[in-house]
Amino acid sequence: MISVVVVDAETPGNVGTIARAMKNFGFADLKLVDPPELDRDGEAYGFAGQAREDVLPSAEEVAFDEVAENFHTVGFTATTNEDARKHVRFPFRTPAELADDLVGVETDVALVFGRERVGLTNEELARLDQICAIPASAEYPVLNLGQAATVALYELRGLAMDESQLPDVEHERAAEPEIERFYERFEETLRAVGYPEGKRPKTMRLVRRLVGRAHPTDREITTLHGVLRAIERATRER
């Protein structure tokens, strides 16, 4: 199980924002260390969206020591000190790299986010197992607590959502017979407009590679057929 732990949040709104992001990306277990008051008529529940129905009211208040001792812990920080001599915050992983690291880990994992102004302290980070940082502009690398959690949970969504909940990109690609029919029509159009015969095989390979990378949808292929029909019609009417 993967838990999201928020340490010493100052504003209820950020707790609600994190609960909402958890709901968005399939996470359910929220743990709070020294949380602010979470009034059901206040910001936390106002910002939580549908997470006000389950994630937020089910949140458990815990001690930091309890988390450090019982979970594989990942601390999130903006300041990384990219120097192997300062190993409290180094080495660190990006959220995308962390997603790969945690695939198949058979233990309870805690994703630990710190305070709005100062994040997790060096003492807290020293007790955690891994460090994760979100790549951002060097001019302003610090994210709001709610934003940081949302970005991280998005990258880690594959750990919390089963395959049936994840978008299936493959089903958006048009059926192969329709794509093949498009290639045939494209070649017919080349012939109709007088495209040089010697260039047609190379051009068709180029078109096949281009369309192969694009993964067109049914609607896109239908539209392209319409364009080719218009070209053929215009050619006949010349």
Rank of each mutant, 00 (worst) to 15 (best):
V112W: 02
R208L: 03
G13N: 08
D8S: 15
K202G: 10
E53D: 10
F25H: 06
N81I: 01
I131Q: 12
D100K: 10
L125W: 02
E237W: 00
V207A: 15
V7Y: 09
H171R: 13
G194Q: 00
I179R: 11
G226L: 10
R185Q: 15
A78S: 11
A174P: 02
A174T: 01
Q50W: 04
M204A: 12
A230N: 06
N144K: 05
L145A: 14
E43R: 05
A96M: 06
T222D: 13
P35Y: 04
F186I: 03
E172F: 07
N24W: 05
D8L: 07
R236E: 15
T189C: 14
F76H: 03
D129M: 11
K202H: 07
Y140Q: 12
G114K: 07
G212S: 13
A59S: 08
D162V: 01
A148Y: 00
T73I: 11
A59H: 02
R127A: 14
T94S: 15
I2V: 12
V227W: 10
T17E: 13
F71V: 07
G114C: 13
T80P: 05
Y183S: 09
T203E: 11
F47W: 05
Y45R: 04
G104Q: 05
A59K: 01
T189R: 09
V6R: 08
L190T: 03
F90L: 08
E60N: 05
F186A: 15
H215W: 08
R233H: 11
V7W: 08
H215C: 13
R85M: 11
L228D: 01
V33S: 02
F92G: 05
R233Y: 07
D218G: 10
L143T: 01
V118Q: 11
F186D: 04
E69G: 01
T189P: 09
Y183M: 14
T217L: 15
V5W: 02
D65W: 00
F71P: 00
V62W: 05
L38I: 05
K202C: 04
R85A: 15
A48D: 03
L206A: 14
P36G: 13
P216A: 14
R209L: 12
G198W: 02
H72W: 06
